[in-house]
């Protein structure tokens, strides 16, 4: 039986520095077999958490990227019409001989419909991500990414899958999950997710990390970077987040910047260094200017 501290250590071994809330969420999701809905600004490691988890827990990752207009044909299953047709074509001679025994048309139809299940079987089913993760022999990790991009209809579709871990296919009946996957849903909060879906999930909000955790994240990813520089960087970025920028720098920007600085072998932050590398943390022209000005003010 796994405990919360073990989850934290496990994530740490995968290079993901988790705080109390994240570790508890993962622990509960594993133990209670409930999906986690993660919300937060872009780039704070929502998808990263899922990837790291699949790696350290050795669950195969099944990823479903949501977009506007996604439907069950893309998320759950689809019938392979072409293959069905091909098979009927190829089996025509067999079918003829099979049906030629019957006395009249009625009997022929009955004989044929008795074999109907042949054509609506798992053979002709295209498994889309959700069904694939349900049917996997090994417990998998199902990542439903950016659920807020999809429509209301898709959310409703997920309700059955997420609460009972089953998929209803009219032709085949209810298919239950072989091993209940660990489900992670992420959302950037561009649209309100319905309460019905929220109720079925544990809700985890990941915001920008605290100072120490962010430094630890940088140090874990880029051990070659000296810690004073990491501290300086994080401090600068935390100030930048208060600036009312169009796209505030997130953890992913912190890591990008750390990489840039480690390639450049920088040892400490100066206004010049910031001005040269600001492209890694600012994504708009106006933001760039604000950040260079901040560097002038803070680092002189």
């Amino acid at each position: 039986m796994i405990t919360e501290q073990e989850v934290k250590d496990l994530l740490g071994s995968g290079g993901y520095i988790a705080d109390e809330a994240i570790a508890t969420a993962v622990f509960l999701a594993i133990r209670m077999e409930k999906p986690i809905l993660i919300e937060g600004p872009p780039g704070v490691g929502k998808t990263g958490l899922a990837k790291t988890l699949s790696q350290v827990l050795d669950f195969p990752l099944v990823r479903l990227q949501c977009y506007e207009g996604i439907d069950e044909g893309k998320a759950l299953y689809d019938w392979e019409y072409g293959k069905q047709l091909l098979y009927t074509q190829l089996l025509r001679t067999q079918l003829d001989s099979y049906l030629s025994v019957s006395a009249d048309l009625r009997e022929a139809v009955e004989r044929l419909s008795a074999e109907e299940s042949l054509f609506f079987s798992m053979n002709f089913l295209v498994q889309r991500p959700i069904l694939r993760s349900f049917l996997s022999e090994k417990r998998s990790l199902l990542l439903i990414d950016e659920i807020d991009r999809s429509g209301d209809e898709f959310e409703a579709l997920l309700l059955e899958c997420l609460s009972d871990f089953q998929v209803s296919i009219p032709e085949l009946g209810v298919i239950e999950a072989r091993a209940k996957p660990l489900v992670i849903l992420t959302s950037n909060g561009t649209r309100m997710i319905s309460d019905a879906l929220r109720r079925r999930c544990l809700f985890l909000y990941i915001g920008y990390p605290e100072f120490d955790r962010e430094v630890a994240i940088v140090c874990a990813r880029f051990p070659e970077l000296c810690e004073t520089l990491a501290r300086q960087m994080v401090e600068f970025l935390r100030k930048a987040r208060d600036l009312n920028l169009r796209k505030p720098p997130s953890v992913s920007e912190t890591l990008d910047w750390a990489q840039v600085l480690s390639i450049l072998h920088a040892t400490r932050l100066t206004p010049e260094v910031v001005a040269n590398t600001v492209g890694a943390i600012a994504k708009h022209q106006a933001d760039m200017q604000q950040m260079t000005e901040l560097a002038q003010r803070e680092l002189m």
Binding site: T24, L28, E39, G189, D195, L202, F203
Partner: peptide, 11 residues
């Protein structure tokens, strides 16, 4: 954290 995860569903 545990109670927050289970009881609060809105940021």
């Amino acid at each position: 954290a545990l109670l927050r995860l289970t009881l609060v569903k809105n940021a």
